[in-house]
Design a protein around this nucleic acid. Structure first.
Length: 278
DNA sequence: ATGCCCCAGGTACTGGGA
């Protein structure tokens, strides 16, 4: 099985590219972020014609997450328990929730499509929101794995954090002055490792960015960021056989500013198309 | 080469992105 995550930066502007890529790359399940539409605006027909069913969580023109899957999706969950909301000038529970998290179960895999809040600037209330959001997500993942340590859980999406210095190649991000590379953001990301939830892509694809800003020739200069990740529980990580970052999707007409990240899994009883050797 | 910002709403401009 091949599963992927991609911040598509508007699915209506990108539907042709996304579906073509899924078919060409034999993708079984795609977690999308920044669909930037409501469910009724989602270009569903193109996905259905290609053999995918959809789970969509979009509230407005902002944010929005979705799954396209060749296999049945069950236990669809919009937002995770404890997920904080945001309203300017206010704190605490009960604030409006944004469309940033969608959970589905596919073939005994528990998958989340996640669009972590941007943070905007050091000292901005959005950064506190981002850190709280990540901590609540970690707590939810902890609870899920405490209930079932064998759960094959994957947290897939745009994390808006560059965890290591090698993940930061855009000179407009300055240590001590910029989001995405600050110590608290990196600590919030690395806190998942303490839960045994690890980046399953980096060991198999150690180099490469997943985002390049549209401005200032960032892609031709390869001045990007690595901020899109698939983090997996031990049971999920045990299934992973390959991973790749599809850099070519940043090329050509009307690309997203992010590229897809693919993880290949070996599932029990799955025909992997390899010849049997006796 | 991959080439100098894009998306949505709404129809001039603003808000958001990273």
């Amino acid at each position: 099985m091949r599963i992927a995550t991609w911040n598509v930066n508007s699915i209506r502007a990108r539907v042709g590219r996304v579906v073509d890529w899924m078919v060409r790359e034999d993708i079984d399940v795609l977690a999308m972020q920044e669909i930037k539409c409501k469910p009724e605006q989602f270009p569903a027909q193109a996905f259905e014609d290609a053999g995918y069913e959809l789970a969509i969580h979009g509230i407005s023109q902002w944010n929005g997450v979705a799954f396209a899957s060749r296999h049945e999706m069950t236990d669809v969950e919009t937002g995770f328990p404890g997920m904080p909301g945001f309203l300017k000038g206010q704190e605490g529970p009960g604030l409006p929730l944004e469309a940033r998290a969608l959970g589905v179960t596919v073939e005994d895999l528990r998958l989340w499509s996640l669009y972590v809040p941007n943070g905007r600037a050091l000292g901005d209330p959005h950064l506190a929101y981002k850190l709280d959001w990540l901590e609540r997500l970690r707590a939810h993942a902890h609870d899920e794995l405490a209930r079932d340590p064998q759960l094959a859980l994957a947290l897939m999406g745009d994390w808006n954090v560059a965890p290591f210095d090698t993940d930061m190649g855009d000179p407009s991000f300055v240590p001590g002055q910029s989001t995405h590379i600050s110590e608290p953001e990196r600590a919030a990301f690395h806190a998942f490792e303490a839960e045994g939830i690890l980046d399953v892509v980096r060991p198999l694809a150690p180099e490469g960015f997943t985002f390049w800003d549209y401005k200032q020739l960032r892609f031709p200069r390869n001045e990007g960021l690595r901020i899109d990740f698939v983090l997996g529980s031990p049971a999920f990580a045990d299934l992973v056989t390959a991973a790749s970052i599809h850099r070519n999707e940043r090329k050509g007409d009307a690309p997203s500013d992010h590229v897809p990240v693919v993880v290949e899994l070996a599932l029990e009883g799955e025909d992997d198309d390899r010849p049997m050797i006796f």
